[in-house]
Amino acid sequence: MIRRLTAQDHEAVMALVQPKAAENVFLIGDIEAYGYDDAIQTIWGEFEGEALIAVLLRYDSNYIPYATGTFNVDAFGQIIMQHEGPFEVSGLAHLVKPIIAQIDCAIIQQKDTYYAACYALAYEPNDSNLQAVERLTAADYAEEVEMLLSIPEFKHAQISVAARQRAAQYKTGRTYIMRQDGQIVASASTTAENSQSAMIVGVGTKPGYTRQGYATYCMEKLCRELLAEGKSLCLFYDNPAAGKIYKRLGFEDIGMWTMVRYTDNH
């Protein structure tokens, strides 16, 4: 049986997703931030008897499934196909790919990235290297956003002052920066922060200041702080060179993440 979930199902939902907090960073974060009644999202659950075995979350136009075993792929696909307007399906590849095989709609974009998690740093950072790392404050939002957008790989990223403001307001993200020559030259951020986990994003160094360890220092301080709070960390990467850097910190691959964007199916 599949039905829409309510706040009364919260305990069962958390019992399903929390054991894999890194894999479910978006699910946990969205549920903690918006609950079960906000118009921005809807959550469905599949039950086997009284046991919740799978969930499908819609946040705005993005659908994310999660299950620990087999689930009703056809039914989840049918729910998604009822969406009006362009939509997106994303999640762990082994869960998403069976669903997208059921969706008869034109694909705008499909992307597969490595998904990695960290539960402890592989080494203890050198505190002397981190003395110059500081937490980003509102006064520097614009400069930090401009710095990231100057990096070729972030040229088309959805990074903005408004996003930094929302992250601070809802406590869904934080950023650490380094300065050199009186300017911000590197940063590392989180998004989708929740009580259990956080996603690392926006790790970058301003052109002309690369290969000096600045972004790594930001990562070290950010990760150490989050891990001390008892949170699992995760991130996406599609560059093997970047993957080696993250793995030196203690990240391990936990799967592939698939994202598919579709046109309006009506």
Score class of each variant (00 low, 15 high):
Ser187Met: 12
Ser189His: 06
Thr190Ala: 07
Thr190Lys: 07
Thr190Ile: 09
Thr191His: 09
Glu193Arg: 11
Glu193Ala: 10
Asn194Ser: 14
Asn194Gly: 10
Ser195His: 09
Gln196Val: 09
Gln196Ser: 13
Gln196Glu: 11
Ser197Phe: 01
Ser197Ala: 15
Ser197Met: 04
Ser197Leu: 04
Met199His: 13
Ile200Gly: 01
Val201Glu: 06
Gly202Val: 08
Gly202Thr: 08
Val203Tyr: 00
Gly204Arg: 06
Gly204Tyr: 05
Thr205Pro: 03
Thr205Gln: 06
Thr205Ser: 11
Lys206Val: 07
Lys206Asn: 09
Lys206Asp: 03
Lys206Ala: 12
Pro207Asn: 08
Pro207Leu: 09
Gly208Glu: 08
Gly208Ser: 10
Tyr209Asp: 07
Tyr209Arg: 10
Tyr209Phe: 15
Thr210Ser: 13
Thr210Glu: 15
Arg211His: 15
Arg211Ile: 05
Arg211Gln: 15
Arg211Pro: 03
Arg211Leu: 12
Gln212Leu: 12
Gln212Lys: 15
Gln212Glu: 12
Gln212Ser: 08
Gly213Thr: 05
Gly213Cys: 06
Gly213Trp: 01
Gly213Val: 05
Tyr214His: 14
Tyr214Gly: 02
Tyr214Asp: 01
Tyr214Phe: 15
Ala215Gln: 05
Ala215Cys: 07
Ala215Leu: 07
Thr216Glu: 13
Thr216Trp: 05
Thr216Ala: 15
Thr216His: 11
Thr216Phe: 07
Tyr217His: 15
Tyr217Leu: 11
Met219Trp: 00
Met219Cys: 12
Glu220Cys: 08
Glu220Phe: 02
Lys221Thr: 03
Lys221His: 05
Leu222Ala: 02
Leu222Phe: 02
Leu222Asn: 01
Cys223Gly: 00
Cys223Asp: 04
Cys223Gln: 08
Arg224Lys: 14
Glu225Asn: 10
Glu225Gln: 14
Leu226Gly: 01
Leu226Phe: 05
Leu226Ala: 08
Leu227Arg: 01
Leu227Gly: 00
Glu229Asn: 09
Glu229Cys: 10
Gly230Tyr: 07
Lys231Pro: 01
Lys231Asp: 00
Lys231Thr: 01
Lys231Gln: 02
Lys231Tyr: 03
Ser232Arg: 10
Ser232Phe: 09
Ser232Thr: 14
Leu233Thr: 01
Leu233Asn: 00
Cys234Ala: 14
Cys234Leu: 06
Leu235Val: 06
Leu235Trp: 04
Leu235Lys: 07
Phe236Pro: 01
Tyr237His: 12
Asp238Cys: 12
Asp238Gly: 15
Asp238Pro: 06
Asp238Ala: 14
Asp238Thr: 12
Asn239Val: 13
Ala241His: 10
Ala242Asp: 06
Ala242Tyr: 06
Lys244His: 13
Lys244Met: 12
Ile245Pro: 02
Ile245Trp: 02
Ile245Tyr: 03
Tyr246Ile: 04
Tyr246Leu: 05
Lys247Leu: 00
Lys247His: 12
Lys247Trp: 04
Leu249Cys: 13
